[in-house]
Design a protein around this nucleic acid. Sequence first.
DNA 1: GCCGTTTTCGGCCCGACTGTTTTCAGTCG
Length: 575
Amino acid sequence: MPVHNTEIAEIFNEYADLLEIEGTNQYRVRAYRNAARNISVFSRSIAEMANQKEDLSRIPGLGEDLTVKVFDIVNTGKLLQLEKLKERLPAGLLDIIRLPGLGPKRAGVLYSKLGVTSIEQLEAAAKQHKVRELPGFSVKMEENILEDIKRRGKAGTSEKRYKLFTVEEIGKDLLSYLKKINGVKRVAIAGSYRRRKETVGDLDILVTHEKQADVMQQFTEYEDVERIVSRGETRSTVILRSGIQIDLRSVAEDSYGAAMHYFTGSKAHNIAIRKKGVNKGLKINEYGVFQGDELITGRTEEEIYARVDLPYIEPELRENNGEIEAAQEGKLPKLISLQDINGDLHSHTSATDGRSTLEEMARAAKEKGYQYLAITDHSKHVTVAHGLDAERLAQQIDEIERLNDRLDGIVLLKGIEVDILEDGSLDLPHDILKRLDLVVCAVHYKFNLPADKQTERIIRGIDNSYFTILAHPTGRIIGEREPYQLDMERLMKAARETGCILELNAQPSRLDLTEVYARMAKEMNVMVAISTDSHSTNEFDSMRFGIYQARRGWLEPEDVLNTRSRKELQKLLKK
DNA sequence: GCCGTTTTCGGCCCGACTGTTTTCAGTCG
């Protein structure tokens, strides 16, 4: 079982946490965190690279020492130094530093003075009023700790992340409330929401104002606020009833661009930009770009980038994952946008588990301005969806052909979402598949095969000459179902050889491919189709989530199949 | 522990809020 990049990153992060509790030099701690971040966003499998003895030191943040440690983790699945550290420092301390207001320093004090090694022991100590006596603590903090432990028990242990589409509504309501406040000029959501990450942990909102004190007062009085975490003159934090945290930052109009840049992040991108500023003798913060004490600029983000000799960088790219280097070299991608999309290549009808008819779907697609829509109902193996057998599919093909004669301005493409069976064969015979314009293939059961078996299963499918598009390639559902085990690099090589296309499923709960795999596809010359997998006419709007994810994956219009006109598409499909 | 169109050693992004602080440490983003 190969070690995933995220697992290596987790080990480094855990090690950094414990080193910090122990009181290690903060720059050493930072080096581990920095390496962890770079590893988690790296587009190739580092375990794979290590096995092939490739040079790992070209991964940012990996020097001589950490390269050796990565090799150890890849070979053994763990880091010996971390295991040894855990013998000295109990792992329960890692839970304690996740409580708000408790960091490594205070966790270290709790451990050394009271021997506290778990949340339960911390709760007991706080109830006996032992915590308030400690240096760096207070009565108030002791009360907060007890309250947070109670709250934590209610909400579960892991910090919650929200899917992008679920926070959109919360954000919209709050935005319109803030806009009505007297003296407020501009309101915008920044943070990972603006970077269009598939999930966001909190909402970061920026306002410009005439009288800031009033903004903070009214913000914290918003009817949905359950708890005020902090409230200052320029920055406040609240928790809404839904549990989501909102950070509000207010600045003067002249600082809007600088504040937007600062508040959009990512943190790693900001640090890299600020470092470039330092090299040019400039200080960059949320108020602007400074030379000495003099404010040079700050009204727009473009100006901030220009001061460090860079062109504007789109928010979706700001992860310090190569975008700054690309900007320097004038090689930023011209990111795909919703307007580039000319059709949808994955949709269902009421013949199986959809809720709209062929004709309803066709008319809705036409209204979106599309030139084509592929109808791809399930095949017979998906019995719960009443999947089509060869006979019913033949009827649907006839029906589509009759409908196309009547339709104007939109063409329905004849397709199927056919199951890839456990042995890699397809769920329908070739003599019916050959009547179709395209064949979308997917795995819908036996998710738990080991990686080599699952990869071979799909590659055998790809080898089938009728195979066009691999739908939702990893099968993950955000927050609900893990991706199945796959060797994605191997799969993409096979896809490249046969000209098979990978879907980026735009359903906001799937977004499968991830941005990392989307970028990998681009780098490996595998074409991507962004598809909504719509089960009714109102799901076509999900396309934008697919576009966001594609942009995060650096995709340009030419990388995406359904930016093609109908004629170009049909030429490509004939091959 | 990393890293270098000044550097292989000496730096390492920058600021707000809290608590209790009379000048700052800890935490957070």
